[in-house]
Computed example of a mutant assay.
Amino acid sequence: MKKYPFDSSGVAQWLAKLYSATITSQMMEQEHILLSLHSWLISRFDLSEDQIAYITALSEDFKSNLAHEIAFAINNQSPISLDKQTDEKRSGTWARDSVKVTEYESTNTQSDASDIAPESAIGQQFNRNLDGHLIIRIYYKLL
């Protein structure tokens, strides 16, 4: 798979390509993400040295949780979007008392078949819906 720009459109391009790929390819992508979010980000997106250093500095718990959220979204073909501060001129002028913050918001809603009565016909069809959206935000925050 090619490398994509690390911005909203790059994430959208990667996701469109991934969701049009085979299930096997999607599963391999999930495995790569779960194995090492750091390695996967470097292999999928064009990152600067500063961005790589920033990813390296994130806590292992945060990277693990984010990797699981991304893999879950891929498994359910949910939208994933990157909300990133992109004004490089401005971001280079932030005061020393600011920090870069990364967070994610996951809105997953799942309905299952637990409300189907046991006496329902064996061949009865039911819907299993998974709906959600994963938003990854990177921004600066004053301390």
Rank of each mutant, 00 (worst) to 15 (best):
Y4P: 07
P5N: 15
F6L: 12
D7F: 07
D7T: 06
D7Q: 05
S8P: 01
S9D: 05
S9T: 03
S9H: 07
G10D: 01
A12F: 12
A12C: 08
A12Y: 09
Q13F: 08
W14H: 13
W14L: 11
A16E: 00
L18R: 14
Y19V: 00
S20K: 14
S20E: 12
A21K: 10
A21Y: 05
I23D: 03
I23V: 11
T24C: 01
S25I: 00
Q26G: 08
Q26D: 00
M27H: 01
M27P: 00
M27N: 10
E29Q: 12
Q30Y: 03
E31I: 10
H32G: 00
H32I: 05
H32E: 11
I33K: 08
I33D: 02
L34G: 02
S36A: 07
S36I: 02
L37I: 07
H38I: 05
S39H: 12
S39N: 10
S39R: 15
W40S: 07
W40D: 00
W40Q: 08
W40M: 00
I42N: 03
I42M: 02
S43F: 06
S43I: 00
R44T: 08
F45Q: 09
F45M: 09
D46G: 04
S48M: 11
S48Q: 13
E49K: 15
E49R: 15
D50C: 04
D50I: 04
Q51F: 05
Q51V: 04
I52N: 10
I52Y: 08
I52E: 13
A53M: 11
Y54C: 02
I55A: 06
T56C: 03
A57T: 08
A57K: 12
A57E: 09
S59V: 00
